[in-house]
Amino acid sequence: MRSVIIAGALAVIQAPAFGLVIDGDIVRQTGVGQFVVLDPNRSFAVGADTFDDDNLYAFDEDQNIVLESPIRVDIGGVDGRIAAGTVVASHYVFFDSLSGVHVGYVDFDAAILGIAAFQDTMGATDFLANTDVRYISTELRGLEQGDYVWIDEDLPDRLWVYWAGSSPGDYIRVFTEESKAVPLG
């Protein structure tokens, strides 16, 4: 009986968390960086060259928010929108690199619904941030000409990035399906 309880407890501990950033990697770059998941409960600032390194960063924003009205996305969605009533988890992904080209990916434990990749769509979805993170130079967020992001055709929970690093960096917001690990907010 005791071994069944311990095995059950381990299964709960090892169960995946859905809708959260779980992994990533840089597969090609001109610098020396790595994938880093940041803790949004620890205060830090993002934007305006606050990192200035070759790492690919991601962190979770608000989780399991029922959209009261549709939101517009630049990639994904249905006709460029995620519908009202949809439960979404929000995530922030960025390179604040010094220079060069960076190719990498970020994995989530839920399918990607859409991506805000430009200032107007990011600004319109700032209500989904809800973290201890300070977002600075928000008028400079988004992607620059020649930067690309896409959802993997075979792995709908994987986001790919092809970004040319320069000041102030590249910033996007990713919306995934609801997190099974977090209660509705």
Rank of each mutant, 00 (worst) to 15 (best):
M1A: 14
S3T: 13
I5F: 11
I6M: 06
A7V: 10
A7M: 12
A9H: 09
A9D: 11
V12T: 12
V12K: 14
I13G: 02
A15C: 10
P16N: 09
P16D: 09
A17K: 15
G19Y: 05
L20P: 02
V21Q: 01
D25S: 13
I26G: 00
V32I: 13
V32N: 12
G33F: 04
F35V: 07
F35C: 05
V36H: 02
D39R: 06
D39A: 05
D39I: 06
P40M: 05
P40W: 04
R42V: 15
S43K: 10
F44V: 05
V46F: 04
G47W: 05
A48N: 15
A48F: 11
A48S: 12
T50R: 14
F51K: 12
D52A: 15
D53S: 02
D54L: 02
D54W: 11
L56T: 03
F59K: 02
F59A: 00
D60E: 11
Q63G: 00
N64Y: 03
N64R: 07
I65L: 12
I65G: 03
V66T: 15
V66Y: 07
S69Y: 10
S69W: 08
R72F: 02
R72T: 13
R72E: 11
R72Q: 10
I75Q: 06
G76P: 03
G77P: 04
V78Y: 08
R81N: 08
R81M: 10
I82C: 00
A84I: 07
G85C: 07
G85L: 08
T86Q: 08
V87Q: 08
V88P: 05
V88E: 05
A89W: 01
S90C: 15
Y92R: 13
V93Y: 01
V93F: 01
F95I: 14
F95Q: 12
D96A: 02
S99T: 12
V101C: 06
H102C: 04
G104E: 02
G104Q: 03
Y105R: 07
V106D: 03
D107Q: 10
G114K: 08
A116S: 11
D120I: 10
G123M: 14
G123T: 13
A124W: 01
D126T: 10
F127V: 06
L128D: 04
A129M: 05
A129V: 12
A129D: 09
N130S: 11
T131L: 00
T131P: 00
D132N: 15
Y135E: 04
T138L: 09
L140F: 09
L143D: 04
Q145A: 15
G146A: 07
V149N: 08
V149E: 08
W150L: 07
E153N: 13
E153R: 14
L155G: 00
L155K: 11
D157N: 14
V161E: 03
Y162D: 13
Y162A: 11
W163G: 00
A164G: 10
S166Y: 12
S166M: 13
S167T: 14
D170G: 15
D170T: 15
D170N: 15
I172C: 00
I172N: 00
R173K: 14
R173W: 00
V174I: 09
V174Y: 03
F175I: 02
T176M: 06
E177V: 04
E178T: 08
K180R: 15
K180M: 12
A181I: 05
A181Q: 08
V182M: 06
V182Y: 09
L184H: 03
G185E: 13
